[in-house]
Design a protein around this nucleic acid. Structure first.
Length: 687
DNA sequence: TCCTTTCGTATTTTT
DNA sequence: TACGAAAGGA
């Protein structure tokens, strides 16, 4: 029998417990990932469950990849490839792909990313005779409402019914949009990201055969970050496990920071009700942080109501007190933190990757960036735009999508006028109208004589240019069907044909940006080529390839990883949200001011508890040193405004705090202190 | 149709 | 302040 070493008793029992459904409440830094991977190992080695019957669900591709990596080290690559480690969305996609017709789709359906979805919603107003496109903010609101309906598994009809019965706060206009949007997706044979969960739920609910098929596939299910599940994801879990009831959910209610995106931490409570013999195990020993840091975290989170009482403890010693620094304003805050890092790094020869600066909103990052650039310190910025939402990538992706399915209207709209072919919104509206009347795709409509004569004589040039482009697509399709391996060449030729480099040059002045963007294009081509190497049979197969690319941006990760490994010497700049799951020896938690953390909107909408959890997440990122900063004044929309210290500061125990002298409230004085410090450092560096 | 100016508005983000 | 989107001119 396999021995599990170096684990505490709670971890061990979480790994070995198989009798009933299990919920593991895993505090920050309690070795959660370790427990999941060890459990999988245990399931295979001791419980003798076949690897391909073990499913593990995560929220992000990053987490899925990480888990795979860890398992690979332990179990070897062959076992790992058999295992089903995937995100919710990938699992949903696989379920849909297995039986597309039963889910009301045709095979080769298109996956719209949220930008496409947003554009689709915006285009719905145009057709509604009001000629002005709705503004972006409005569309985003509607998209969010639609998403909320979907996450709660409410169909347009149900929404309408509910609307008429109760005085629901959602306007009938939005439900109308929801209904039209759904119809439109169906017409395109397209799904959005939410559909990747909701359609499988519907399918499994209604179709016993398919439900039983999937239940048979899964002998044991593990769910990571359970507190982040929304209603539809929870239903999916329930449907997949209701037969065998063999699963482990791992989560932490105190780290639930995505309620605004539909996550329902109360699903922890639902699990108890739906599975009465649910076993709950708490992981409370923290292996990450010193005692002082954990004391602060425990005190803070105690101010939130709890269903399950949990108290993290550490055996790593008291460590340093938590430093609190008041700064006159945000510029000095940034200066101060950066100079502290420089000083500390110089004295201790610590790698820069040991430092993290955390903040509530992305706009705060700019100041830190500026300071780091001044001092030529390399940094890693969290978030940023995903490769797939970059415009240059969308241009190529749109072309590939059209090759896979010329009737993909969203893709058509994306590429038809980039670079400019004199096909502006007016002609496009005519085209859209023409297409709608005849129930044709934009691609087909444009080629009809009837439409081209509608455009009139002035548009001869436009027609010529667009036709040239449409013919290119048709010819390229033919080429791919003859030899799918030519894809790479074809795409490279396409860039040249477009004179895409020149196009990029017209968009930006910065030669570095232009180069980077062009490299992104080449990278994408490489990616598509590798992904399609052995699986691509014809142009229609491009659809699935692209869907996989959109759901799992995994390949991008590989490149990023290479970069990351090279830059062990980079400071991390991250939002609090993006910092979840990470850890750093030295953490700076910035901007603890009312209105910023907690954010003003959360104060207005009574969701300060989530902000407290966000702060809790921030504190528990720190391993040995935590510095909290706040400013007495902060520029807000161009105006300097006096701030109030965050209420969270009062919720920390004074005995673990070291508050730096209030005397430096004076701006000029603080500036002097900063520059003096830098001077001494410069002297030191010279030696 | 496209380029420039002006205006309005401001969390968090993954798939 | 700083960005993106609406509006107005060529």
């Amino acid at each position: 029998m396999h021995q599990v070493l170096n684990l505490n008793s709670a971890q061990r029992s979480a790994i070995k417990y198989l009798e009933t459904p299990l919920l593991v409440i895993a505090g920050a830094g309690s070795g959660k990932t370790r427990v999941i991977t060890e459990k999988i190992y245990y399931l295979i080695e001791t419980a003798k469950i076949l690897p391909n019957k073990i499913f593990a669900i995560t929220f992000t591709n990053k987490a899925a990849l990480e888990m795979r990596e860890r398992l690979g080290k332990k179990l070897g690559p062959t076992v790992t490839t058999e295992m089903q480690v995937s995100t919710f969305h990938t699992l949903g996609f696989n379920i849909l792909k297995h039986d597309p017709e039963a889910a009301g789709l045709r095979s080769g359906f298109t996956l719209l990313d949220d930008q496409d979805a947003l554009n689709l919603i915006r285009s719905l107003t145009e057709a509604q005779a009001s000629f002005n496109k709705m503004d972006k903010a409005e569309a985003e609101k509607i998209a969010a409402e639609i998403s909320r309906f979907k996450n709660n598994l409410i169909s347009p009809e149900q929404a309408l019914k509910k609307q008429s019965q109760t005085n629901s706060p959602v306007s009938p206009v939005i439900i109308k949009f929801y209904e039209r949007y759904t119809r439109q997706l169906k017409a395109f044979n397209a799904v959005d990201f939410d559909d990747l969960i909701t359609l499988p739920v519907k399918l499994l609910k209604e179709n016993i055969k398919i439900r039983e098929y999937w239940q048979r596939q899964i002998d044991y299910l593990l769910i990571d970050e359970y507190q982040d599940t929304n209603e539809s994801q929870y239903q999916l879990i329930k449907l997949l496990t209701e037969h065998k009831k063999a699963f482990t959910a791992v989560g932490d209610d105190d780290q639930s920071i995505y309620a605004w995106r539909g996550a329902r931490p109360e699903n922890i409570e639902h699990l108890k009700l739906d599975f009465p013999n649910l076993k709950i195990i708490l992981l409370e020993q923290n292996y990450r942080s010193t005692r002082n840091i954990l004391t602060a975290a425990n005190y803070l989170i105690q101010h939130n109501p709890h269903l399950v009482q949990k108290k993290l403890y550490s055996e790593l010693g008291d460590g340093e007190p938590i430093k609190i620094i008041h700064c006159p304003d945000e510029n000095i805050e940034a200066e101060r933190i950066v100079s502290d890092i420089i000083g500390h790094q110089f004295q201790n020869k610590t790698p820069l990757s040991n430092y993290a600066i955390l903040y509530r909103g992305n706009h705060q990052a700019m100041l830190f960036e500026k300071q780091l650039q001044i001092h030529r310190l390399p940094y890693n910025l969290s978030g940023g735009m995903s490769l797939f939402s970059r415009s240059e990538i969308k241009d190529i992706l749109g072309f590939i999508r059209l090759l896979g399915n010329p009737h993909d209207d969203a893709a058509f709209l994306r590429v038809i006028n980039t670079p400019k072919r004199e096909m502006g919104p007016i002609s496009l509206e005519k085209l859209g109208l023409y297409a709608k009347e005849r129930n044709l795709s934009l691609f087909s409509s444009f080629q009809e004589i009837g439409f081209q004569s509608q455009l009139g004589l002035k548009a001869q040039k436009t027609i010529e240019k667009v036709n040239l482009f449409l013919n290119l697509i048709k010819n390229t399709q033919r080429k791919i069907n003859q030899n799918p391996n030519l894809l790479k060449n074809i795409l490279e030729e396409y860039l040249e044909y477009l004179d895409y480099y020149a196009h990029l040059e017209s968009l930006s002045e910065d030669p570095l940006v232009i180069k980077k963007r062009y490299e992104n294009c080449l990278f994408l081509i490489q990616l598509v080529d590798e992904l399609g190497k052995n699986s691509l049979k014809d142009s229609a197969g491009l659809c699935e390839l692209l869907n996989r690319l959109l759901i799992s941006q995994t390949q991008e990760k590989e490149v990023l990883d290479k970069e990351k490994n090279q830059d062990l010497g980079k400071i991390t700049l991250s939002t609090l949200h993006a910092s979840k799951g990470l850890e750093f020896p030295y953490v700076f938690l910035t901007g603890l001011e009312e209105g910023l953390l907690p954010h003003q909107n959360s104060i207005d909408s009574n969701t300060v508890e989530e902000e407290r959890r966000l702060t809790y997440v921030g504190i528990t990122r720190a391993q040995s040193n935590l510095t909290i900063t706040l400013c007495t004044h902060r520029n807000k929309f161009g105006e300097k405004i006096k701030t109030t210290p965050s209420r969270f500061l009062n919720e920390l125990p004074t005995e673990v705090l070291y508050v730096e002298g209030e005397l430096s409230n004076n701006q000029t004085e603080q500036k002097k202190v900063n520059s003096q410090k830098l001077e001494t450092l410069k002297q030191l560096f010279k030696k």
